[in-house]
């Protein structure tokens, strides 16, 4: 099988063998074959790029980057305020909670992308016919969505902090607040990614996934807000403090910013004492529940 295709005469004279493509037949691969961990990491990076629309069409890049831009606006405005008025804008720890609609839309629009196409176009069997396991697959998808959300939340905070250092505000820099807010961003990213990917994984249709995640966000924050309002109107502030914890954004704020780092709450108040432990438990419980649901979902999908 040594057939050779001569190149077009214009590109190479007959005397130049460099212009000839030789079919050298099938070549075996004897290079390294890396571990499952490397494959999982490659899948994570592939999914993370996909979340931001990299390697996809221009249309797929619009939503994630537009949301990213909106998320940056308060940081830019705050830096401008610090530079011109010597006045702080948004507090680090409250940034995510105040802007919560943006990460929620980001989660709803992008988390179905990480899981739905593999189910809909039945790519999953190809992954599972390779060394990666269901656990590896699920952790790669969760890691990708978590990393995407963390970037969305942490980049504006970091820009704001760099801005603060450059502007050189009077008084000490709020380094500990910044670091605490990064921890909060990580907490938000993990919880939201787990919830979003788990909900999205139950339907192979992306549109339905988007609707389901946004419905979950609206329902949880709506119920939380309504209960808070109701309890405050009857003067039951303790119950109102508990009602905040129904929203996934406030529960992370209560667990990490307020509970672990002792910063000011973004809501009016959270339940004290036992309430801190409860907030941390709710957060961890929701993450565990979502991951379990994901694993069970994929066990079932794989056996088909």
């Amino acid at each position: 099988m040594s057939e050779s295709l001569p190149a077009p005469p214009s590109s190479a004279p007959a005397s130049a063998p460099a212009g000839v493509i030789h079919d050298i037949g099938y070549r075996h691969y004897d290079g390294p074959r890396l571990s499952r961990g490397h494959a999982t990491l490659a899948l994570t990076v592939h999914s993370l790029r996909g979340v931001f629309g990299l390697g996809r069409t221009v249309r797929a890049k619009i939503i994630p980057f537009a949301l990213f831009g909106i998320m940056m606006l308060p940081a830019v405005v705050s830096i401008a305020m610090m530079a011109m008025l010597k006045e702080r804008g948004m507090a680090y720890s409250q940034y995510t909670v105040i802007m919560q609609a943006i990460p929620a839309i980001f989660l709803a629009s992008q988390s179905p992308y990480t899981v739905a196409p593999d189910l809909r176009f039945r790519v999953l069997p190809l992954y599972l016919s390779r060394p990666v396991t269901i656990r590896d697959y699920v952790s790669a998808k969760l890691a990708a969505m978590t990393a995407a959300l963390f970037l969305l939340l942490a980049v504006p905070l970091t820009v704001l902090f760099v801005g603060e250092l450059v502007v050189d505000m009077p008084g000490p820099a709020q380094t500990s607040e910044y670091l605490a807010s990064l921890a909060g961003a990580a907490g938000h990213a993990v919880l939201l990614a787990a919830l979003g990917v788990a909900i999205a994984s139950f339907t192979p249709r992306r549109g339905l996934g988007v609707a389901a995640v946004i419905a979950f966000y609206l329902l949880s924050s709506g119920v939380s807000g309504a209960l808070v309002g109701m309890m405050e109107s009857v003067g039951d502030d303790a119950a109102a403090a508990w009602a905040w914890l129904i929203s996934p954004f406030f529960v992370v704020d209560a667990a990490i910013h307020v509970g672990v780092f002792g910063l000011d709450p973004a809501a009016d108040s959270y339940p004290g004492g036992f309430g801190v432990a409860a907030a941390i438990l709710i957060m961890l419980g929701l993450i565990a529940l979502s991951v379990t649901a994901l694993i069970l979902r994929y066990r079932k999908a794989a056996s088909r």
């Binding site: 691969y29 290079g31 490397h38 494959a39 992954y127």
Partner: peptide
């Protein structure tokens, strides 16, 4: 893109 991705899922390094 797809075939490269699937090769990496089988443990091949990027260039390979």
């Amino acid at each position: 893109e797809f075939t490269v991705h699937m090769a990496r899922m089988s443990g091949l390094p990027r260039t390979a």
